[in-house]
Nucleic acid binder design. Structure first.
Lengths: 217, 217
DNA sequence: CCAATAGTGTCTGTAAGACATTATCAC
DNA sequence: GTGATAATGTCTTACAGACACTATTGG
């Protein structure tokens, strides 16, 4: 006999892993190998065991998925819709994580980076969960610490501005944006220029090491 | 034989109910009638059943505790420390709620308003959960909608300023605060004055009905 | 009159926002 | 040279923040 919803409430964690590549905000998704939703994409995650906290569980997920768990992460929201998964009543707590995409390691899990505007068909309610994660990201952008995690390597000011605009969903004047960012004293020139694009090469910047918590918007 | 942690993971909701009375921020707590922590105070809450969402469960808690559930509420944070409750592994999702204290009705539950600076001995990790709720309140204060929920009745500007200062944990210049609040156009004079205190009577204000979402700090 | 509290205006500095031209590269 | 993109400075306006005195009430 098929067992339907007989296990009580199950509890799972999910993580939205963000990065910036080539001036684009991206999220790491995992391909679903099993029914239901086989072939769809999902957020990395796992059921919680009785002897672990959410944070410990998220670290396990990160290690299995990208081979590293010491990244910036933050709890986002707990989803409890009754039918968010078929058959099993499952409550999910989602996290966001932010890292330099160069840091991730190959694992057994099939994953892929998607730009935030090109999210594929998602399993369950994971699309909605990503939307909520984007909101948190937007709110956290007023805190510059998070920016540093998004841009660990060299970047150009136009790239930085693009990320701002895509996360905040606004358009900014180039001159005013530069003025503001530079006045804040958060970044410094590396002395090198960007190469390869057409047009005048952009200067490369990096975040200073000793950034304090500063509200920038 | 005593059963220890044999029920798997239990899931509960908790709510931080806030109000403002006489210019003081207060939270509603419930007296614990049973061991453990008998006689201590706790946040209103309840275990989640398999056929209800967190939001539905919170509404149940509100109805049982204060006889009203249609209030401003918002999910805050999910606590998953393994030993946060003795014997039962329990994960808790906390909410904040805000209302005019005049709206609450008498129920069977023994509750009491505590000013936020005079929190009594709390059961479990509820003290920590209140701290987290204060942080959310602080963050949400930049959105004026929440202010309206805190001040449904007439209030004076010094009272409003007191609440600001106690939630934000800062001190503000009286003149600058008035200027800012009045310039925002969120409130209007009722035409009446406060009575009863010593000194010059303060004008009474109320929030306008059509407040939009505006960031004020 | 005294104590207590509420109410008010000005000035200064800083930051936001609007705006157009010049610079450097690949081809 | 052309096309593409990056870099830059000025002016105006709005808001933040510092600051001291007057007004109204109860006793």
């Amino acid at each position: 006999m098929e067992k339907i919803k007989e296990e009580g409430i199950i509890f799972e964690s999910l993580i939205n892993i963000f990065t910036v590549e080539k001036g684009k905000l991206k999220i790491l998704l995992e391909k679903k190998q099993q029914e239901p939703y086989k072939g769809y994409w999902k957020l990395p995650g796992m059921n919680i065991k009785e002897d672990e906290t959410l944070e410990q569980n998220i670290d396990k997920v990160l290690n299995e998925t990208i081979g590293i768990s010491k990244i910036y992460k933050e709890q986002n929201y707990t989803f409890s819709e009754i039918n968010r998964k078929p058959n099993k009543r499952t409550i999910a707590t989602s996290y966001i994580g932010i890292l330099d995409s160069n840091l991730i390691k190959e694992t057994d899990i099939e994953t892929k980076w998607f730009t935030i505007d090109e999210i594929p068909k998602m399993a369950y309610d994971h699309k909605e969960i990503i939307e909520k994660a984007k909101e948190l990201l937007k709110n956290r952008l007023i805190n510059t610490n998070i920016l540093k995690n998004l841009f660990p390597s060299d970047f150009t000011l136009p790239e930085l501005q693009n990320i701002f605009e895509s996360i905040m969903n606004i358009n900014l004047d180039r001159r005013n944006f530069r003025k503001k960012i530079i006045n804040l004293g958060l970044i410094e020139e590396t002395g090198y220029n960007n190469v390869g694009g057409s047009g005048r090469p952009a200067k490369l910047y990096k975040f200073k090491d000793d950034i304090k918590e500063i509200n920038i918007f």
